[in-house]
Design a protein around this nucleic acid. Structure first.
Lengths: 142, 142
DNA sequence: CTAAATTAGATGGCATTACGAACTATTTCA
DNA sequence: TGAAATAGTTCGTAATGCCATCTAATTTAG
């Protein structure tokens, strides 16, 4: 399409690949989330809490959301019994968010399901290519 | 964590890479969208309409949304002057959705901006690696 | 040591998003 | 022609996420 002789710009092909692959992955994640009556954000919360017990503000930072948005998010997760609010002992204002056993269980199930669904997406790639892709993506996000 | 000697499962590393890279790309897209007072979905609509003038139902299929969701989406885009609803001549019920000149202009600006922001993400990759990644992603989504 | 400023989080009001069910208008087909 | 199917819209509902505001606890200054 537009040539855009970009000095050092990402190529249109790479941009397209990244964007399309991302949408595909997000669609897959949304599907899995929906199967368990979760939003994508709730799914993210479970994933984040798998190896952290952050304060509300930290969780908000991880999610890239405002504190106020996370309040309601955590409310709903608590109502479902997936997440727990623990009062901090150091700071009477602060709250530590943690998975309940149910939440941890669900997080595991979801991880497995995502792997299940991601597998056919990578069908076209030989094992060596998968390893290559894995390495390249790691360097991309790292 | 869990070994899960998956017969042919996607590796935990690849899953992580794909998911994390996708979230990074989506965050970037959301940021660009927000800069122009658009939601991620509105941004997608503009991108889709760049090379199509679909019926409402086709647009819904592209987005993976219900028809009813797309009605409001298009309403708001029309109100902003980004998108046009053309009555089909073949079918008195059908509506063709198309970009207005303003919408097309904005779509172009956004594409450029996305390329701009994607570039630093790929800073860690040598040109050859970028091409490799591009090819691998193409095969992933293709 | 108290008063002011800061911080953590919650709350309320708002627009958007997305869904499903019900509705209208136009085809299509029997 | 009349019944069924189809294209979109509308309506009611829940969730998301923002901002501004509020409360309570903690720091910092004077």
């Amino acid at each position: 399409m537009d040539a855009h002789a970009g000095r050092d710009q990402v190529s249109a092909e790479l941009m397209d690949g990244l964007v399309q692959a991302s949408f595909a992955v997000m669609a897959l994640l949304s599907r899995v989330a929906a199967e368990h009556d979760l939003s994508l954000t709730q799914l993210r919360v479970l994933a984040i809490l798998r190896d952290r017990e952050p304060m509300m503000a930290e969780l908000a930072a991880h999610l890239g959301l405002e504190r106020s948005s996370v309040s309601g998010l955590v409310d709903r997760a608590v109502r479902r019994g997936l997440v727990r609010r623990d009062a901090s002992e150091k700071d009477g204002r602060a709250v530590r968010v943690a998975l309940t056993p149910d939440g941890r269980r669900l997080a595991g199930v979801i991880t497995d399901k995502v792997a299940d669904l991601l597998t056919p997406m990578t069908r076209g790639l030989a094992p060596a290519d998968r390893r290559r892709l894995s390495g390249l993506l790691a360097r991309l996000v790292g």
